[in-house]
Amino acid sequence: MRLPLWLAQHIAALRALLVFTVLLGLAYPLAFVAIGKLPFLSERSDGSIVTVDGTAVGSRLIGQAFTDADGNPVRKYFQSRPSAAGDGYDPTATAASNLGPEDVVDTADRKSLLTQVCARSLAIGRLEGVAGSRPYCTSDGVGAVLAVFRRDGLTGPVTRVVSVNQTGAPFLARYDGVPVAPARPGVDYVAAGGVITPIRGDAPAEPVVPADAVTAGASGLDPDISPAYAELQAPRVARERGMPERSVRKLIAEYTDGRALGFMGEPGVNVLELNLALDRG
């Protein structure tokens, strides 16, 4: 007896579903679990956990914060880059902020990416005893951004200027001859017709504080920092530990990984392993 075409098609689809369920839902994952248990792969498959005296202190693959209970940097340790994963380095909430370079105006709900970068750079500058200034940042650590109003919308003389990220004294007294006013909370100056105008200022084109020190990675779990950020922190760490600075820099070089395959990505310094090496003396 020949089955109806519609029934034959459904039976064929069901067979394919069962076959692929067994192959891809059972056999494939079990095979990789077995491969992960091989002696030379078991450590990596278990998360590359680092232990000290039998106690897990972190993973080589997942970053973590080296801060005290109040969130302040522990000065004797190298600091990781910022994280947007949950409350910071949360493996269950891996994520980026998804904010881009045009996110420059603070709102009532959150700080813009530009202001976050400015504030972090200023804080790191204070921690490391260097200039934390950056282009398009004010001296008090917010985005140096104006809303410029012109007589004819986008053209004509400037009639009004507002420092959109500052409710106190503006970072700039006048713009194009017009006094700069502070922002009023809750006012949308873009909707009101202002042209958003970032002001570069006189900060150096290459800031002392490197980019990875003030921006979070895409995963929010980066275990590495750039050699430049590690070098910036070396004097503080050496001073706090009473070590020669050359010894700290030697450890930085030892724990710096090169580019993958010699040409992919950028060199990185594993922060956890570097800090543990310092603790071992």
Rank of each mutant, 00 (worst) to 15 (best):
M1C: 14
L3I: 07
P4C: 08
W6Y: 13
L7V: 08
Q9E: 12
H10F: 10
H10G: 04
A13C: 13
L14V: 07
L14D: 06
V19T: 04
F20S: 12
V22E: 00
P29L: 14
P29E: 15
A31P: 07
G36D: 06
K37S: 11
P39V: 02
F40W: 07
S45A: 09
S45G: 10
D46V: 13
T51R: 12
V52G: 01
V52I: 05
D53H: 14
T55E: 10
R60T: 10
R60Q: 12
A69P: 13
N72Y: 11
V74I: 15
V74E: 15
R75L: 10
R75Q: 10
Y77P: 08
S80P: 14
R81P: 04
R81L: 11
A84I: 08
G86Y: 03
D87H: 09
G88V: 07
P91W: 03
A93L: 13
A93N: 10
A95F: 01
S97R: 13
L99S: 13
G100V: 09
E102D: 15
E102C: 14
V104E: 07
V105I: 12
V105K: 00
D109A: 15
S112V: 01
L113D: 00
V117I: 05
I124M: 05
G125M: 00
R126Q: 15
L127A: 09
E128C: 05
G132L: 05
S133K: 01
C137A: 07
S139P: 02
D140C: 06
D140A: 12
G143W: 00
G143A: 08
A144Y: 02
A147Y: 09
F149V: 00
R150P: 03
R150G: 08
R151T: 07
G153Y: 04
L154G: 14
G156E: 03
R160G: 05
V161K: 03
V162M: 02
S163C: 12
S163W: 04
V164K: 00
V164S: 00
N165A: 09
Q166N: 03
A169L: 15
F171I: 09
L172N: 02
A173Q: 07
D176S: 15
V178H: 04
P182V: 12
G186K: 02
G186L: 14
Y189V: 10
V190Q: 08
V190S: 04
G193F: 06
G193S: 07
G194I: 00
P198T: 04
A203I: 09
P204Q: 08
P207L: 11
V208A: 05
V209P: 01
P210S: 13
D212A: 13
V214C: 06
T215D: 11
G220A: 07
D222F: 01
P223S: 00
P223W: 02
D224I: 03
S226L: 10
A228C: 08
L232N: 02
A234T: 04
P235F: 15
R236G: 01
R241S: 04
E245I: 13
R249V: 10
I252G: 01
I252F: 14
E254T: 11
E254G: 12
T256H: 03
G258E: 11
L261E: 09
G262N: 02
E266K: 14
P267T: 06
E273K: 10
E273H: 01
L274R: 06
L276F: 12
L276R: 05
